[in-house]
Design a binder for these strands. Structure first.
Lengths: 194, 194, 194, 194
DNA sequence: CATGAATGAGAGTTCATTCAT
DNA sequence: GATGAATGAACTCTCATTCAT
């Protein structure tokens, strides 16, 4: 596959990403993607054989590009509280952006495709986020910013709540206020005085 | 609609429920339900016009039958801790029962059908559960069983964590141990010993 | 399947038969049959799932209807020679009728579908024809009409020659004269005069 | 066309030949040949415009290389019986080698392409084989090896039986024993004492 | 009420063939 | 000469939905 193909492949993935954001996963057909890309039916099959294949690739791209949630935008002298709040704010922004998200498509995809542990990007992301938050809390406790007897439990609590918010945003709806309240509750539990 | 029709309607809903548990929502076709019920294609249309209509009715039945999570099995002299633990145990059982659940179908359904607030059964259930838990915590605080400064926050935290577990169970998988750990964390946050 | 369905099924098979005679087996698509029958795309699938299935059924019909090559048209007082010549004349007629035959379709079908011995109608027909001819020759020898030391060999020779003619008719072409000559040769080998 | 092109052409034909042996004629696509040759799609079209064209060329090659069935391996002092038996043995070997043969592909090809007499290689081969066998039988009769009143009839009988075996091998199956028996029958008819 | 045959739109997929590079 | 990306026609198959009986 030449240079040109690589670009086109990328173009298809980018375009498909938008389609998945709009329609979720299951409702998207190869035809939808063909039309969105304005290429020929057969043309798409030169690159991908199914919506599953495309979506998996979209997810992979996504996770490569967003690995660095924590590393970006963090000042040298940021405290644990600063970093945690930055992360939570980021997550809040993400989950309130209901339509512009791959969340729903991702859930739909995983409903039907039980991937081996190795391929389960979602799980990997979840677990690595837990670890990072746990470390962060431990650092905060060390530095006297937080009070917490079970950093792992707290970290998982945070991630599960976020997960709960994410699915709620797609089903029963979520508003900024209720998110703020709950994040405040969590921070207070860690002994952070707003 | 005569007595007989009512029975047949019920039969269709019960059968469809099983189909939804097996296949989720989107993958289920009218044909699937017709075949599962062993009735004629046209016959099904006499009662329902789409899988959406059927699923909504299944959900309504479901919520009527399970309103009483808290009222059942509760002894006269049960403490707030007893009741909360009973509830959590029930929820744990539910979410570990990955396959035999309408969870996935429900999520899929809500992904595609943004219901008016009135019809959003899911939201109603969530909110009423929050209130009950909140009341329970308040009672527990009153009685000296729990320590909690923000009972609503704590109640929402519990429900969001459960929601997080539920969706995780359908996507990245969840095991009993990790559920136990997190429930323990929550109870400890409320000041419950052991 | 009601009475009506049975008729329609028969109608489809009859129509498909004509299509197979015209185009052979491989070139025939479900669409061809749909169009020939003037029914809807989906309609055909109510009865058959593939051209293979249809063709197999056509073959089965065919073999049911033509089992009695020998039993028909045979007078009480027919000699072995009479019967044999009648059979050969029938076969000659068949193989010269190049276009109006399922021969080509049948060959094409068997090229791609190696059927279990049980289902191999072609083989069954061949073997039962060999046996009948063999018996006929034996009867003829008994009655002093034929001279033959190896009736089975002779019977197989006849059937193989016919098979050779059949395939030749579809590939290199065959004319009446050359068939006549060879049939004469065979009869002379059996000691039949003129 | 340069020297290089000639070689490439030859390479394509050799490779295509193998493909035809494996899959017959109809199932083979230009894509199959492109992939087997590991050349570009467009590249193949520089040499050939269709599978028909390629196959015809393969057949032509084949017939050029195998003209000499009789001339090879024949000793100076071979008798007519020797030569005939050698030929039959060769043919037997060929037809029992069901898979590794162009037989099926050839039949399929001729089913769809009614060639002008000039181009019908198959017919030419058949007729020239008949003549050779006829001459052989005549020589054998002359030399007292065979007894035969109609050498042409006998020659055609042999070729038709072989043709019958060939097509049977591809459809209903043929085993060595049944071939041996029939060849024996034929030889005996010529008065050859095994 | 109930049946189930029939329709036709639409999704998936594969290739022969072309053409800019 | 050679490449391989791109096109679009053609097929297969599945269902939601209707309707005569």
């Amino acid at each position: 596959m030449g240079e040109k193909s690589v670009q086109k492949r990328k173009f298809i993935l980018d375009t498909a990403r938008k389609v998945f954001m709009e329609k979720g996963f299951k409702r998207v057909t190869m035809k939808d993607i063909v039309e969105a890309c304005d290429i020929s039916r057969g043309g798409l099959y030169l690159y991908f054989n199914s919506t599953e294949e495309i979506f998996l690739e979209v997810l992979r791209m996504e996770s490569e590009e967003t690995d660095d949630v924590f590393s970006d935008n963090i000042k040298e002298d940021a405290t644990a509280t600063d970093i945690l709040m930055l992360f939570l704010k980021e997550q809040k922004k993400e989950l309130l952006r209901k339509e512009d998200t791959l969340t729903q498509a991702t859930y739909e995809f995983y409903f039907e495709n039980t991937l081996s542990k190795k391929d389960n990007i979602l799980k990997k992301q979840f677990e690595s986020a837990v670890i990072i938050i746990q470390k962060l809390i431990e650092a905060g406790v060390e530095g006297g910013e937080f009070y917490c007897e079970d950093p792992e439990g707290a970290a998982r609590n945070i991630m599960l709540v976020l997960e709960g918010f994410k699915i709620s945003a797609q089903t029963i709806g979520v508003n900024a206020e209720s998110v703020d309240k709950q994040l405040l509750y969590i921070l207070k539990s860690l002994g952070v005085e707003d």
